[in-house]
Design a protein around this nucleic acid. Structure first.
Length: 565
RNA sequence: CGGGACGUAGCGCAGCCUGGCAGCGCACCCGCUUGGGGUGUGGGGGGUCGGCGGUUCAAAUCCGCCCGUCCCGACCA
């Protein structure tokens, strides 16, 4: 492709709307343009990168025997009503009516559609296992789209669904997909980690997330370098043992703490370490009030809490509810005399004596609080978020925390969709059984963004070779006929040899061409300029290392791995 | 949805407080110049100042409502 005719609008300056690096670079390098919040157009260069990722995914999915289909983006309400998700899914599901006033939605995921397809067509255990996948747009009306295509409302996803006869089959299929994912992200040139994950809204029994390691990632990961345990912190079990020195219980006492609410404030006001504070958090679990006690220096994990409570919907009590339950404004809740029926505590509170809590009264805290004496002993559970240095739940060595971008997610679904939708097959004995399902996603557009987040420098993108839109950029520096002729010849030769080459044949100064070259980040830059006129040699610069070497034009093709004539 | 910021040429911004000719840089078009890291120079085109309403002799500027965008928190590939 000749750059003089290629639709590649690059920007000199960072667009004001972009905050994270991948977003800035994708806009500046002419990969994407925004149409509305969370909705993007892919320009030719961006689309090529997207297609590279898609093709890797396609090859690896096909390799494990998965078959590609294309499911509709627009889906009828009836299917969603069958599984109950029409009501449960929430506002991310964009609903609308057609001209006949029938309800439809834009597909945020496709379990219903695929299960509907398979229940109609697959009758026998002989046809199993079956893995179907698609690479297609999804729409999720995210509350807050951000970071460009990293968290967009419309995005490209590969979603796969597996159907097995039994749990053992699902186990094997899950394993095969898991391994395919490892190959996919390795081939994309990414540093990633598969971690244990929560199953969230999709549901299911076991799940792993594939995380691209990056500082800007929205997820926190707990990793054990000793035994290889890796989990999203939202899930990571805390097995810490808390040993508190023996203390005699001192008399309960009220202290005046005017306007002092947060753990930090109380801690510095009373001159007591946050670990001697117990915060009382009020939640509504399916509408029922619950109080949760967590040591002041730890963070409550809402996912763990929801699981312990078996609650579908869990939300923090709003200021009014807090006032109603405690009789005090937010910031002064405590377990002593609290009229909430259910009180839970994190293990970190067990054994703690003479701690500080709110007194359910404005501007007052209690000191020397002891459970069992001042309020009934609560049930103790693992309710806090894992922290750096907590013992690994598997081997006990200290965990380290890092950040990641979720690019893939695999779930064991079991029979929850097939059973509710009546998707069954005949087993060997002729008995009807529900399919045992799995589902497997990859954010294609997010993978491109994550790759850029992980591979860039101050000058621009450094595309990993496998997903680069082109392999090489040929830069012609100058207008002399000899340069243009030689460049043309190199360009033709490379193209014919199957080396995807973009030729910067524009009438621009060298500086402009170099800046754009580094910005768009193709792996190789082939420079034909003054030195070529002097020596007849082409200078090859690797974008990643900056390493340069000179080659005769005839050597360039084989250097870049082109096919011979 | 709560909290914060912003909306002026394609992009990045100034002007607004204190109402009075709509500006700067980049990009774009024409000329000359230059030609290995965003060359220099001369000329030129491009604006419902987010929208609607109000105040005023006069509104980008003051007031009200609305829309949009971005950032921070609860969702997810």
């Amino acid at each position: 492709m000749r750059l003089s005719q290629y639709f590649l609008p690059t920007l000199r300056e960072d667009p004001a709307e972009a905050e994270v690096i991948s977003h800035k670079l994708m806009l500046r390098a002419g990969l994407i343009r925004k149409v509305a919040s969370g909705i993007y157009t892919y320009l030719p260069l961006g689309l090529r990168a997207l297609r590279k990722v898609e093709n890797i995914v396609r090859e690896e999915m096909d390799r494990i025997g998965a078959q590609e289909v294309l499911l509709p983006l627009v889906q009828p309400a009836e299917l969603w009503q069958e599984t109950g998700r029409w009501e449960k899914y929430g506002k991310e599901l964009l609903r609308f009516k057609d001209r006949k006033e029938h309800d439809f939605c834009l597909g945020p995921t496709h379990e219903e559609v695929i299960t509907d397809l398979v229940r109609g067509e697959v009758r026998s255990y002989r046809d199993l296992p079956l893995i179907l996948y698609q690479i297609a747009p999804k729409f999720r009306d995210e509350i807050r789209p951000r970071f460009g295509v990293m968290r967009a409302r419309e995005f490209i996803m590969k979603d796969a669904y597996s159907f097995d006869a039994d749990e053992a089959g699902l186990f094997q299929t899950y394993q095969r997909v898991y391994e395919a994912y490892e190959r996919i992200f390795s081939r994309c040139g990414l540093k990633f980690k598969a971690v244990l994950a929560d199953t969230g809204a999709i549901g299911g029994s076991e799940s792993h997330e594939f995380m691209v390691l990056a500082e800007t990632g929205e997820d926190r990961l707990a990793i054990c370098s000793a035994c290889g345990y890796a989990a999203n912190v939202e899930l990571a079990e805390v097995k810490a043992v808390y040993s508190y020195p023996e203390e005699t219980e001192r008399p309960l006492e009220k202290v005046s703490t005017p306007g002092v609410r947060s753990v930090e404030e109380v801690s510095s006001f009373l001159g007591v370490s946050p670990s001697r504070l117990v915060k009382t958090l009020l939640y509504l679990a399916d509408g029922e009030p619950v109080a949760v006690l967590v040591r002041g220096d730890y963070e409550l994990n809402e996912i763990k809490l929801a699981k312990v409570l078996g609650a579908q919907g869990l939300k923090m009590a709003d200021a009014e509810t807090v006032k109603r339950l405690t009789g005090a404004p937010v910031g002064f809740a405590g377990p002593v005399g609290l009229s909430v029926k259910r009180i839970l505590a994190d293990f970190s509170v067990r054994g703690l004596k003479n701690f500080v809590t709110g007194a359910n009264q404005a501007d007052v805290h209690y000191i020397n609080v002891n459970y069992g004496r001042d309020f009934p002993e609560p049930g103790f559970y693992d309710l806090r978020t894992a922290e750096e240095g907590d013992p690994c739940p598997r081997c006990g060595r200290p965990l380290s925390l890092t950040r990641g971008i979720e690019v893939g997610h695999v779930f064991k679904l079991g029979t929850q969709y097939s059973a509710t939708m009546g998707a069954t097959f005949s087993d060997r004995e002729g008995k009807e059984r529900p399919f045992v399902m799995g589902c497997y996603g990859i954010g294609i557009s997010r993978t491109v963004a994550a790759a850029i987040e992980q591979n860039h420098d101050s000058a621009g993108i450094i595309f990993p070779e496998e997903i680069a839109p082109f392999k090489a950029l040929l830069l012609t520096l100058g207008k002399e006929p000899a340069l243009m002729e030689a460049s043309e010849k190199i360009y033709q030769t490379l193209t014919q040899a199957g080396v995807e080459t973009l030729w910067d044949d524009r009438d621009e100064r060298p500086g402009v061409k170099f800046k754009d070259a580094d910005l768009i980040g193709l792996p190789y830059q082939l420079i034909v300029g003054k030195k070529f006129l002097e020596t007849g040699q082409v200078e090859v610069k690797r974008r990643a290392s900056g390493e340069r070497q000179v080659l005769a034009p005839s050597e360039v093709v084989s250097y870049l791995g082109g096919k011979g004539p």
